[in-house]
Simulated scan of single mutants.
Amino acid sequence: MLRVVHRQGTITAAAEVLHLTPSAVSHHMRELSRELKIPLLEPQGRRVRLTQAAHVLLGHADTLLSQWEQTLADLDSHRAGETGPLRMAGFTTAAAGLLAPAAGRLKTTHPDLRVLVRECDTDVSLELLLAGEADLAIIEPTEEAPPPGDPRFDQRPLLHEPLDLAVPAGHPLAGSGAVTLEDVADEAWIVSDPDGCDHKRQLMVHCSAAGFTPRIEHEATTWTVIWSLVANGMGVSLIPRLIDGLQLPGVVRVPLTGESRPTRRLLTCVRRGSREHPVIAMGVRALQDVIDGSPAVAA
Results as ranks from 00 to 15, higher is better:
Thr142Ser: 13
Ala102Gln: 00
Pro85Trp: 06
Arg272Phe: 05
Val270Pro: 01
Arg156Asn: 07
Thr71His: 14
Thr93Lys: 01
Asp195His: 09
Ala53Asp: 13
Leu75Val: 12
Ala89Lys: 01
Ala54Ser: 03
Thr224Gln: 14
Val284Asn: 06
Val225Met: 10
His6Gln: 14
Leu163Asp: 00
Asp121Val: 11
Gly175Ser: 12
Arg272Glu: 07
Arg152Ser: 10
Thr83Trp: 07
Gln155Glu: 05
Val17Gly: 05
Pro172Gly: 08
Lys107Asp: 10
Ala96Ile: 10
Thr12Val: 14
Met282Asn: 05
Arg152Pro: 00
Arg47Ile: 08
Leu72Asn: 02
Val254Ile: 09
Asn232Thr: 15
Thr63Trp: 08
Glu144His: 15
Thr224Arg: 15
Val5Met: 10
Arg272Met: 10
Val252Phe: 04
Leu72Phe: 04
Val251Met: 05
Asp150Met: 12
Pro194Glu: 02
Pro147Met: 12
Leu113Asn: 10
Ala89Asp: 07
Pro22Lys: 05
Leu36Trp: 12
Gln52Ile: 10
Ala94Lys: 00
Cys269Gln: 04
Ala131Asn: 03
Asp135His: 15
Ala96Lys: 01
Cys269Trp: 02
Leu99Ala: 11
Ala185Arg: 14
Leu246Met: 13
Glu276Arg: 15
Glu276Asn: 14
Val191Met: 02
Val290Ser: 06
Gln70Leu: 11
Gly132Tyr: 09
Val254Ala: 00
Ala185Met: 06
Ser26Tyr: 05
Ser26Leu: 04
Arg30Cys: 08
Cys207Ile: 01
Val48Glu: 03
Thr221Lys: 04
Leu41Ile: 09
Cys269Phe: 08
Pro278Ala: 11
Phe212Ala: 04
Val48Trp: 02
Gly211His: 04
Cys197Phe: 13
Ala231Thr: 10
Leu72Gly: 02
Ser208Val: 03
Pro151Asp: 11
Gly233Arg: 11
Leu116Glu: 13
Leu248Glu: 15
Ala80Arg: 13
His160Pro: 07
Val4Ile: 15
Gly235Cys: 11
Gly196Ile: 07
Ala24Glu: 08
Ser228Val: 07
His55Met: 15
His60Leu: 14
Gly177Tyr: 11
Asn232Asp: 13
Arg7Gln: 15
Gly293Lys: 10
Gly132Cys: 14
Arg30Thr: 09
Asp292Arg: 15
Ala188Pro: 07
Pro43Asn: 12
His19Met: 12
Gly59Phe: 01
Pro22Met: 04
Leu287Thr: 05
Glu259Ala: 12
Gly273Ile: 06
Gln247Pro: 00
Gly293Trp: 04
Pro111Ser: 03
Leu130Asp: 03
Val191Asp: 00
Gly84Asn: 05
Ser66Lys: 04
Leu267Met: 11
Ala15Met: 05
Ala145Val: 09
Leu116Asp: 08
Met1Trp: 08
Arg271His: 05
Arg156Phe: 09
Pro141Gln: 12
Met234His: 15
Phe153Val: 03
Arg272Asp: 07
Glu143Asn: 12
Lys200Glu: 00
Val279Pro: 00
Arg30Asp: 10
